[in-house]
Every structure is written in structure tokens, then in C-alpha cells.
């Protein structure tokens, strides 16, 4: 398991992959928003939590199809499937690797991007906490979507159509935590909900992803 994790992260970092790309995409979204809505820092501060969450979500989405597609093409996915590792563990490790390679950098970079959108100072901690808690759910749900579409030739667009509706609850609670934090309100309730969704997804979705992957490898 550890070997697979290390291999996946190395591939993500070295093979010109999701790692830098996701961050760059996040940056571009953040840069484009003021062009769209105007440079008024009051307005930007008000929408910053939502924009940051949306940007993180979209850049997560961007790298989803790489989770299984490359391994599927060169056949290493079949090898992994026949390895003694159970399929559930395989998809969990894949999700973890995706989170480490895209989620964690996004979380770490978010304060910098928040600065660009003039997020009020009291909003930084809730934003960081909500992203740190929420992005694992995005990776796990995304892994399910990637497992669903792994055998398809043009799965990319379909993948977003399937995964984005599943992201709704995570986005709602995550952005709510960040927004309430920025406005100096109580964040405990949405934070608890977000944690519930994340841990629920981590506990249950790997079984669905594994089932789907087995069907696709049949």
C-alpha cells in the first residue's frame, strides 16, 4: 500500500501532472474573478470564501480523470487489481494520493489566494480548516466518479457531469463555514456537518468505487 501511495504521488509530482496544474488553475480562477466582477475590494471580500471554495473544487475536478486513466491505458490497473491488495484499499490509496497531490497544495496555497481577494483577516482560519476538512471528501467522491468512467474514451466531460452534483453538499457546508468565518459568525454547526460528510464519504464510498472498478475491469 505504501509503495503504491509513494508511486502515485511521485507520478503526480514528476510527470508534469495534476500537482502544478491544479494550483495554476486555482490561481487563474482567482485572477479572473476580479476581471469579471470588478476590482471593488468590498465586493471581493464578500464573495471571496465562495470563490475560493469553487476554485478549489474546480481544480480538484480537473485532475480527477488522471486518477485511473493512465494506469488503465498502460495496463498497470489490471496488475494492481490482481495484486493481493483488496480493491477497496486500492481505491482508498488512490484517493489519498489524489488528495495529497492536489488537495493539500490547494489548502496550503489558499491563504495566499485569499490575500488576492482581500478576505477579512478573521476569515483565514475558518477557510483553511474548512478546505482541509472538505477537500478529502472531494477526492473520495471524485475517485468514485473516476472509477465509473475509467473505461470510456471521452470520459472527461461525463465525469464532471456525474461528479459535480455529488459535490453539492460538500460545497454548501464548506463554503458556509468559510463565509460565516469571514463574517465573524459561529461556524460550529456547518463545520460539524462538513466533517460528517467527509468522514461518511471516506468510510463508505470506497466500497462503491471498488464495486464500480471491478465492473469496469471485467
Amino acid at each position: 500500500m505504501r509503495a503504491l501511495l509513494i508511486r502515485d504521488i511521485r507520478l503526480a509530482v514528476r510527470a508534469g501532472g495534476g500537482f502544478g496544474l491544479g494550483l495554476a488553475f486555482f490561481l487563474i480562477v482567482v485572477v479572473l474573478v476580479p476581471f469579471g466582477v470588478g476590482p471593488d475590494s468590498g465586493l471581493l471580500a464578500r464573495i471571496a470564501p465562495g470563490i475560493l471554495w469553487l476554485g478549489a473544487l474546480l481544480s480538484c475536478l480537473l485532475s480527477l480523470d488522471r486518477i485511473f486513466a493512465l494506469d488503465w491505458e498502460d495496463g498497470s490497473l489490471d496488475l494492481l487489481a490482481t495484486a493481493p491488495l483488496p480493491m477497496e484499499a486500492l481505491v482508498s490509496v488512490k484517493a489519498l494520493a489524489h488528495w495529497l497531490a492536489t488537495g493539500v497544495p490547494l489548502v496550503l496555497a489558499s491563504p495566499l489566494f485569499a490575500l488576492l481577494l482581500s478576505l477579512p483577516p478573521e476569515g483565514y482560519l475558518p477557510l483553511l480548516v474548512s478546505l482541509a476538512l472538505g477537500t478529502p471528501a472531494l477526492s473520495v467522491i471524485g475517485t468514485f466518479g473516476a472509477a465509473l468512467t475509467v473505461g470510456l474514451k471521452r470520459g472527461g466531460l461525463l465525469l464532471s457531469l456525474l461528479v459535480l452534483p455529488l459535490y453539492v453538499p460538500t460545497l454548501i457546508f464548506g463554503a458556509e463555514v468559510a463565509r460565516r468565518g469571514a463574517e465573524g459568525l459561529e461556524t460550529a454547526v456547518p463545520l460539524a456537518m462538513l466533517a460528517g460528510i467527509t468522514f461518511g464519504a471516506i468510510a463508505l464510498l470506497p466500497f462503491a468505487s471498488a464495486a464500480v472498478l471491478r465492473v469496469n475491469l471485467r
Binding site: P165, V168, P169, I172, F173, E176, P190, M193, I197
Partner: peptide, 8 residues
């Protein structure tokens, strides 16, 4: 989940 999230 979305139904209740949206309510919230």
C-alpha cells in the same frame, strides 16, 4: 444530503 444541505 443535498436536500438537507440546501435547507440549511
Amino acid at each position: 444530503l443535498s436536500r438537507y444541505a440546501v435547507n440549511f
